[in-house]
Design a binder for these strands. Structure first.
Lengths: 220, 220
DNA sequence: CGAATGATGTAAATGCTACTCACATGAACG
DNA sequence: CGTTCATGTGAGTAGCATTTACATCATTCG
């Protein structure tokens, strides 16, 4: 008789007792986190936006942290898909595709601030659940496979461990995203966009490994 | 009459009304943050550890966020000092000193988890107060000056902007520290220590810029 | 010396939050 | 039609941030 549909609902798919509370809560939490960071998200506020009582969410999540962990897990799934699409199996060429992964990293941080914050800026430990660990490992695995491919043509003597290369690029991407991308966005007089900063860094790094682009188009 | 001294006090320096509550609160907050992260720190708990009522802290800090901001500001001061000492005006040689800055970055994250978390993992915006902005700029300025020095000997045509180099190294250091260093410490089967990972990355990067160490000691 | 003053701390209250438990409601299924 | 299970509600507990009125004490000034 009185289960009003919150506010931002899409207007379909409700069954009885609000229908899909679980998804509605996740959506509300994503919006709240995207706006105010992980701390600005409140279990009670999410329930309010979904139009249910403050106790209702506990039928779907053990506690607040588990909702965050579930969002992070789902986010890593999307993250993995975005990285895989950017890599595109190394097309058009491994070097370009490698840089595209970095760009996808930053784009994800910028366009999915809710997911990104839940994944990296909330307090969750990544080792919390095996599923979370697995899906984050899969996302990183794409970067690692790409590093393997990019370094494959180097002579064995000077070929670095692909894992190390992947860790370097991941760390650089994550550092740039944390410091200058997404929310908070320190923007301390950045002379270039985060994307360009990252691409330049990766190119210099690859050059240091002895991998140079055939036609060096971008030069600082 | 009854101003018991909390628990962890050093047993000196108290005047009347507890004496230096401000410092005691900062110390308590640092310990709490170092243990449980920025979220595990409670204004009330800090007051409890200092042996005062929950309202007392408001005589010294406008609110909880300002205490965090003050800690972050103080932390950036120590951070600047640590980086400056590591750089040591470019001694023994600029390249080694440059790597030392990176190591100091990670060492700070590891040995000062309370400060580090307040600086980078709490929700504060760095632009909150001009003082905070200034002191963080000073810390970064050390890295930038070092980058200037390291790239100074390159021929003008291939010399990159020092600012960009500093941003790259800062981002890499910060990414490694966030992902693998300090608290949380994802440790996803790291094949090497964060310090070694960072040093290797910086060396590859510098090599990509055309700067190589005279005697290449470390090779992956 | 003694009283006003300002700095520092307290008690109590408000409102929000996480979380729990006993109960209600309605859907599905026998 | 009645039982059962899933889902939501109401009320309660406990903790925290924050405010306000009040207390206490050091200092300063007449």
């Amino acid at each position: 008789m009185s289960w009003r549909h919150g506010s931002a609902g899409r207007g379909h798919g409700r069954a009885y007792h609000h229908g899909n509370l679980r998804e509605a809560l996740i959506e509300a939490a994503l919006a709240l986190i995207a706006e105010n960071g992980p701390l600005g998200f409140t279990f009670a506020e999410a329930a309010r936006q979904a139009g249910v009582s403050p106790a209702a969410p506990y039928r779907h999540f053990r506690d607040r942290d588990q909702l965050l962990a579930d969002i992070a897990q789902q986010g890593f799934g999307h993250f993995e898909a975005a990285l895989a699409q950017a890599w595109n199996q190394g097309a058009p060429d491994p070097m370009t595709a490698f840089c595209n992964i970095g760009k996808a990293y930053l784009e994800f941080a910028r366009t999915q601030p809710g997911y990104y914050a839940a994944m990296f800026e909330a307090g969750i430990t990544l080792e919390a659940t095996p599923e979370l660990r697995d899906v984050s490992d899969r996302a990183f695995g794409i970067l690692r496979a790409a590093a393997e491919r990019v370094t494959a043509n180097l002579p064995a003597q000077q070929r670095p461990p692909a894992l190390m290369v992947a860790l370097h690029v991941w760390s650089l991407s994550h550092g740039i995203a944390s410091l200058f991308g997404g929310r908070n966005a320190v923007r301390r007089g950045l002379p270039m966009s985060p994307e360009d900063l990252l691409e330049a860094g990766v190119l210099v790094y690859l050059q240091g490994l002895g991998i140079s682009r055939q036609s060096s188009e971008t030069k600082f």
